[in-house]
Design a protein around this nucleic acid. Structure first.
Lengths: 209, 209
DNA sequence: AGCATTGGATACCTTCACTATCTATGTTAG
DNA sequence: CTAACATAGATAGTGAAGGTATCCAATGCT
């Protein structure tokens, strides 16, 4: 497959593919001559993955590269793979501030009995959101958060169930990435629809025409 | 409060505040003279809200303006308010394509018995994600999606519970916005931690040092 | 009186994600 | 065989987004 075919099959313009090659998101094709290279199905698949991560999920090009690099560097352990994929989603230059919210998150994780790495970026993400909400006058205490966490637990069970039966570690890694990252907008969409439904149920007053 | 004080209290630079004023995200202060205006706590609160939406949630400035406008135009009905807040989060220029995924989403909503507006942006968002996942070889059928939807239902119940007891419609509207939009990163962070925990539980092989 | 601060306007800057153009080389149809 | 077209790789340009800097005249504070 030459670059123009790759472009036609993926719907991504040749110039954009070249851009991704430059940025290191896509492996170069197999060179057949000085001005000719051959691409295969792997490239097509990778290209679709890139478009999904940047388009649907809105990841930046550089974050996408980090995620794909982590995916390529997998060493066979699903746990580690997932951690890598998750970890790449946030650049933690600063070594996690010592805010009261961070302590609150730690306490929550403790109470849940979760085995979560100390430097997991999700900890900081949660702490940051809690801090924002508090400054806006909506402090979420552990009691409020706990039932959400229990639901997250069950969501994670569903997620992991879908990785069962995948023996190829590379395939498992990619599936994990897709389910973790790409399912997020889907879950949020479900939540919004459920909110609309629940709101309509509780306040059957006036419905919009 | 003058602009420099507003800046100091919020941690946002004076030039950026001026930028927000230009963009219509912030109401102008009460003019006390040709070159003097007075800002109050409402402005400070609004400014914090803007920073939360753009910073934590990553909304664009123009989307943020739309959301805040919707918030100001509330008419007293919580259901409508929520719909407005939710609806503003996605620009639906195109009138929802007729993809197979859109039909699948409609069937899912039907099966769930949810009362969700036909043109709810969340429908399109879900359909788009499903389409992406399918093109990547991970087709999620209704059977797989259903348990996720049931969990979303229970999450929504928790969300709506927190709006109970708020009598001031403006306050309820703002709370709804915060819980809908700002809680998203928190819920995703919980899910990621839960995934890590569940993965560790299932594959206790080698743990990272 | 005199100097810093303010509101308002305008111009400028940086990053991001592409997009266009150029050149030297290859491929291919007639 | 050659003219027309495609390709790889390099470099430069584009447009939107989100600020930032500068300037100015009017004002407030001391």
């Amino acid at each position: 497959m030459r670059i123009s075919e790759l472009s036609r099959h993926s719907g991504v313009s040749v110039t954009t593919i070249k851009y991704y090659l430059r940025e290191g998101l896509l492996q170069p094709g197999r060179q057949t001559a000085a001005t000719q290279a051959e691409y295969d199905d792997q490239h097509l698949r990778r290209l679709r993955l890139i478009r999904a991560l940047t388009g649907v999920r809105g990841l930046s090009v550089s974050t996408t590269r980090d995620v794909l690099d982590a995916l390529a560097e997998h060493t066979g352990d699903t746990h580690r793979l997932l951690g890598l994929a998750l970890g790449s989603l946030r650049v933690d230059d600063e070594p996690a501030e010592e805010t009261p919210e961070a302590a609150e998150v730690a306490a929550l994780v403790e109470e849940l009995g979760w085995d979560v790495h100390e430097s997991a970026p999700a900890r900081a993400a949660l702490a940051e959101t809690l801090s924002s909400l508090r400054s806006l006058g909506v402090p979420l205490d552990r009691r409020t958060l706990l039932p959400y966490a229990r639901l997250a637990e069950r969501t994670a069970t569903l997620d992991l169930d879908q990785l069962d039966g995948l023996t190829d570690p590379l395939e498992a890694a990619e599936r994990a990435l897709l389910l973790t990252v790409l399912l997020e907008p889907a879950l949020m969409a479900l939540r919004r629809m459920a909110q609309e439904n629940e709101s309509a149920r509780r306040h059957p007053s006036q419905d919009l025409p």
